[in-house]
Design a protein around this nucleic acid. Structure first.
Lengths: 227, 227
DNA sequence: GCTAAATTACCCCCAATGGGGTATTGAGCG
DNA sequence: CGCTCAATACCCCATTGGGGGTAATTTAGC
């Protein structure tokens, strides 16, 4: 039974080393090459004999120089039979979306245990699309809302229910304040209301934007052009 | 720990019976109702007190009368917090697609072992989207195909070099996390570093971006295309 | 091998935030 | 006139965040 040939594109030296060490324990998976950059990987693949190409490439999304996404695009163009598994630290919806568009068919988090990585490789090789549950959920949301979308859109917005947030005038005013980095205290002062009032408004804003932190509220506000 | 309340809509009598028998073995999952038709399920849900609504509905796609898909649409409209797990005999791509559009977030095959069903229920309840590998692959193809029709140019393009603030690779990584709404704790966990370390990095980031709050850091990051 | 930068880690103090809730008032509308 | 919604205000509790700092280790470049 021939082992699954895997190449790895990862700029983090210790993570590359970790893979090299840990994959040795698997009979059915063989780490045939590792690269620190997308350019290096493409150059090596171009020079490879077809029989020596990997079946799967583990691709870090964040790479110096050519991004993991651009590298994935190039690999899928040049070697359509190679499957690409994306590695990422965060489940950034924008990047996941771009990775899907680029042709990646698997997604892993960098802190997944090696056994899970190996299993995901097997699933990918068998024609599956391994991904975490939260990525799966995100993907379904993409599919659900993309289909109803028209014209110019934002990926962040499309993740949410495709209805207006229905923020009141006052709420938009306070959201504007959040985006400008104001605190409860400073907003209260500027609007001549109690900090308690500010807080209640912000709670309601969070609920309407479906977020639980200021950072995300700011992000939605900017991305959706609410302020 | 309250068990996950599950209802089942399944016209096949022996399968309903099998669920009733087999779910009794789980401590964390409680089968609270079974229905043979979509109409019966909707009627019962409408009459339920909010506290007695199920968390999850297992929905057969093929039902007499109102289809599983139509029932899912109605359930998601009336009870947006209820998650729907689709049951099907075959992985019919068209039905899967319609089920996704209807709002289902989980997919199972009728011959999946009960332990897999239970695990899928837990994953769904935890915010995931359990599905088989082949369904996952199909979903990605849907997403990839449909978005290509809407315009591919946006994919291959914007590359920002974040040299303006001279942030290190690690700092950019952490800034990415801020933009994603992560906390010190969650960032520390994901990056295998101490929360103290995260905090120090974030302090340095604030200094380089000339800001004093997360909201502003997020704003600068997005405005300047740093992440 | 040396040096600087990056990365890591820790501590203290205080402020700010988030989520749970309740409650009153005024404006607009049917 | 009663109802609904927005705006306002308050409370409790727990958690997170910001700014002040120090310090050791690692890495990369020369």
């Amino acid at each position: 039974m021939t082992p699954i040939k895997v190449a790895c594109v990862e700029d983090n030296t210790s993570l590359r080393k970790r893979f090299e060490e840990q994959f040795e324990f698997f009979d059915d998976i063989q780490l045939v090459a590792t690269f620190a950059t997308g350019e290096a990987a493409l150059n090596a693949l171009r020079k490879s004999a077809p029989s020596k190409l990997p079946d799967i490439v583990l691709m870090d999304i964040e790479l110096p120089g050519m991004s993991g996404i651009d590298t994935t695009i190039a690999i899928k163009e040049l070697f359509p039979d190679i499957d690409v598994m994306m590695f990422t630290v965060f489940e950034d919806e924008l990047k996941i979306f771009h990775a899907i568009q680029a042709g990646a068919a698997g997604y892993l988090l960098k802190d997944d245990p090696i056994e899970d990585v190996a299993q995901a490789i097997r699933e990918l090789h068998a024609g599956g699309a391994p991904m975490s549950q939260s990525i799966a959920r995100t993907v379904l949301s993409f599919l659900r809302t993309r289909n109803n979308m028209s014209g110019k859109d934002s990926l962040i917005g499309s993740v949410h229910e495709p209805v207006e947030f229905d923020l009141s005038v006052r709420e938009l005013e306070l959201l504007q304040g959040l985006v400008q980095g104001e605190t409860y205290q400073t907003l209260a002062k500027k609007l001549f209301i109690s900090p308690h009032t500010v807080k209640t408004h912000i709670k309601n804003i969070y609920k309407k934007l479906h977020v639980h932190s200021r950072a995300l509220a700011v992000r939605v506000a900017l991305d959706r052009g609410l302020v």
